[in-house]
Design a protein around this nucleic acid. Structure first.
Lengths: 344, 344
DNA sequence: CCTAGAAATGGAACCGATTCCACTACCTCG
DNA sequence: CGAGGTAGTGGAATCGGTTCCATTTCTAGG
């Protein structure tokens, strides 16, 4: 009820409030004796500093805001878990701002919550900003690190989406595939990744001297269900069927594999499938993929943000870190079967 | 930089700080004129109240803490998304405490963060407490609502795990299965669900006059990978093979379905699989399951917590809400094939 | 031996809101 | 017409820390 304050601790320790504050927070000069007594008294009374009072007085809140467009998708939940662990180790809490609701919620989060002084810094995951929003955020001066997508003026950690998709698709090309489909998403809203992954696919196909066939490109949502539906459409007609699918994410790829099986097709004998992510389930599905080392990205982003918090505001410089991706060959890809229809 | 405070707003509106505070927070009596002026001035200046200052003064922080043992699992990420949406609509932020790290992190969260006065209330997901921890939490007096698992003295929203597992297993029994395996987890740590789901399975089997075969019960982790591994073991030997699997979660069930397919078995012809959850992917995998209406559980828990926050501390009574489950029959279950070896 | 500078400490201002209290102006009811 | 309430408002205390500033003590350098 009547919670224990720093005053109580000071009284018990026989010291002033100021000294106890310095002793417990580790700022300023305090004798060993004073430190020991303060700590002992705090422990005896079960004292924990009120974050609100400390924040108000010091301007530091020991809290990081994290903006995510989804939680219930592998990439995002993995980033949340990883970043949370890194931040917790440094004594930071993590307040989650989920943009699921739509445009109104999005505006509210972006315009309000940075101003409320509840957070010291912000981790934004796969957030695409328009110019006005970007200007607003920069004006506030709160350190921001984005994961996924490069935003000018804001520190970012990301992969080269274009290169990742090209790497995945080149793997199929190298195996001898000529009829390669793409399952991905439209480049819109919060998703800057979009166009670039589709671009990487197109680049690899074109570089192999293969013509782009619009009918082999299925753009839609991000979920496994979307991948399933897209693959069902792509694989429906045996005459038009691609021999391989390059998916923009592992979730789409897993959906595609499931769809192929439901159509009675064997993966990889009838159709090869490659994804991008390094999804935990890739193992179970034998999925060949381009690992984007999500945990490393998240760790690096959190670490970068913490480092920027330690710097003077005017010495902070936007940093762009790029994590290298890696092709992980498993059992969902192989050379296409020789087809009579192709060459007499 | 020099952020705008309530004082600035008061000056611009030509009112006292006290009146502006009342006008903007909606507490106490304020004339329409004063309200309008305050709001206008606040808008002009782009004023947003500092949550820290408001919390310190009022004792209300407009922030809810959410304790989760995982983020990267369907049940948990779905609860997070849903609760976040409900809370945001009422102006509450959500601070996430991820217990992934282990015992030390867990202790830290439970002993520290409630005392820091950063949160008004707590949503705990699938958290099992020992007596000492429970006593500690109750002493603090912060409203708590748990999702999954019933804790005495604390409000909970949950399903009847025992009944859910029995319902799933009874479905298999009704189809004529006699050799029914169970994939689940040990009842330990944060997981009170455990024993009861296993219990429901056992109860249904026993009620059908079938003897429990220990070799048909595979207990392990919670992930799809775990389900895959367990099913591979259970289905390996054709002579010992069960005709149906009752899994304690949809993720385990999806792993089991994948394992069966990899073994060249047809689901449901060779082996039926049923899960518990209502997982979004159930559709794609044609999974028969017991839907536990996770979003409804999360909504109810968040709503309940908000209601308790509105009540006087001494009028709060622990509430136990139970959400009813529902069998969802899809295509992963059917009657077993007649087997020569069984009867003549 | 004297003095500059660092270490150690306490008093008090301060962070930015909320809310208690006192006061005035009006209403209403007996 | 006077008493009791309620609406509307501002001044000032308050929440619980942090940190500036002043003071004292100690150490080291000249």
């Amino acid at each position: 009820m009547a919670s224990v304050t720093i005053k109580d601790v000071a009284e018990r320790a026989g010291l002033s409030v100021a000294t106890v504050s310095r002793a417990l927070s580790g700022r300023g000069h305090v004798s060993d004796a004073a430190r020991t007594q303060s700590e002992q008294a705090a422990r005896d009374l079960g004292y924990v500093a009120s974050y609100n009072a400390a924040s108000l007085a010091s301007g530091r809140s020991k809290n990081i805001g994290m903006v995510v467009p989804w939680v219930n998708r592998w990439f995002f939940s993995t980033v949340i878990e990883t970043a949370s662990t890194v931040l917790a180790a440094e004594g930071y809490d993590l307040t989650l701002y989920y943009l699921g609701g739509g445009k109104r919620e999005r505006d509210l989060v972006l315009s309000d919550f940075l101003l409320r002084k509840r957070i010291d810094g912000m981790l934004a995951v796969a957030l695409e900003l328009d110019d006005a929003e970007r200007a607003d955020l920069l004006r506030v001066g709160t350190p921001i690190v984005c994961i996924g997508g490069v935003i000018p003026g804001v520190s970012t950690v990301s992969i080269d989406d274009f290169a990742a998709a090209r790497l995945a698709t080149e793997h199929l090309v190298a195996l001898g595939h000529r009829r390669i489909a793409h399952i991905g998403w439209e480049g819109a809203g919060d998703f800057a990744l979009a166009t670039t992954r589709q671009g990487g696919y197109a680049d690899a196909v074109r570089a192999a001297g293969i013509e782009i066939v619009p009918a082999l490109i299925a753009l839609g949502g991000f979920t496994t269900q979307d991948g399933y539906a897209a693959a069902k459409r792509l694989l429906a007609d045996p005459r038009l069927r691609p021999t391989a699918i390059s998916a923009a994410s592992d979730e789409l790829a897993i959906g595609a594999i499931t769809a192929a099986r439901d159509l009675g097709l064997d993966v990889p004998r009838d159709v090869s499938v490659v994804g991008i992510d390094g999804h935990d389930l890739g193992d179970v599905f034998g999925l060949t993929t381009v690992d984007q080392h999500v945990r490393k990205q998240a760790t690096r982003a959190a670490t970068l943000l913490l480092r920027q918090l330690g710097q003077e505001p005017d010495t902070r410089e936007p940093v762009h870190a790029e994590v290298t991706v890696e092709l992980l060959v498993r059992s969902s890809t192989m050379a296409p079967r020789p087809q009579r229809s192709v060459t007499g």
